[in-house]
Design a protein around this nucleic acid. Structure first.
Length: 213
DNA sequence: CGTTCGATGCACT
DNA sequence: GTGCATCGAACGT
């Protein structure tokens, strides 16, 4: 609560509660669309609207990191919901997930793309490469790109998404129509339509998206 | 200890 | 559409 004890209006109030994450992963993946991923880092803050997600669910999902059982690396998947699971992929890209489901049920939602809304200049400088200026649409398109733009890395693994520098907030943005289709960038489990994105958003990765639903 | 390979991004053909 | 950069986790000797 704030000083007046009336109503809390800061970041902590807008951050999604643990109950949001402690549900079926497909539900969380869909409902994270339109929410805002925020990272207040030492070198500055930046934020964007989540426009693309993918669900990775349990040891029975061959594309989920938990498919071969619990390991030190994937331990965050087995931990409490509402925390971040951040790991290095292909030796160069940090990918950020929101851990879902009740504790001990390994599952998470991969954040794949954002529409940048805050800290655009900082994002550009973080992503600057050979002096090329990136347009807003490409700034956070792709899971490895958005972590770089937001300054997310190993230090954010397992942090709470409810308080602290890394948060996901509900800012009451208007609901937009959602499409679903197969997950991309994986070689197994492509039969499951567990990718979700906001229809028509230019910031969505891959083809941007025609598919069913 | 060596080998494989991945929830990618980007340049290039 | 193909190839490559780059590295640590996982697994098989």
């Amino acid at each position: 609560m704030d000083a007046a004890g009336v109503h809390e209006t800061g970041p902590a109030a807008r951050a999604l509660p643990v109950e949001f994450y402690a549900r079926a992963t497909l539900t969380v993946a869909r409902q994270l669309l339109g929410k805002v991923l925020v990272h207040d880092a030492p070198d500055g803050g930046a934020a964007g609207i989540i426009v693309e997600t993918e669900a990775y669910i349990g040891e029975g999902d061959p594309a989920c990191h938990a498919s071969r059982g619990r390991t030190p690396r994937n331990a965050p998947l087995y931990g409490p919901p509402g925390r971040a699971y951040v790991y290095l992929n292909y030796g160069m890209h940090w990918l950020v997930n929101a851990v879902t489901e009740p504790e001990e049920r390994p599952a998470a939602v991969l954040i794949r793309a954002l529409e940048p809304i805050e800290g655009l200049d900082l994002m550009r400088s973080r992503r600057a490469r050979d002096g090329v200026v990136l347009d807003e649409v490409r700034l956070c398109r792709g899971p490895g790109n958005l972590t770089r733009a937001l300054g997310i890395g190993a230090a954010q693994n397992q942090v709470s998404l409810r308080r602290g520098g890394l948060r996901i907030e509900d800012r009451g943005l208007p609901r937009r129509s959602v499409l679903t289709g197969p997950r991309i960038g994986i070689r197994v489990g492509i039969d499951r339509p567990w990718r979700f994105w906001i229809a028509g958003s230019p910031c969505v990765s891959g083809s941007g998206g025609q598919s069913a639903n």
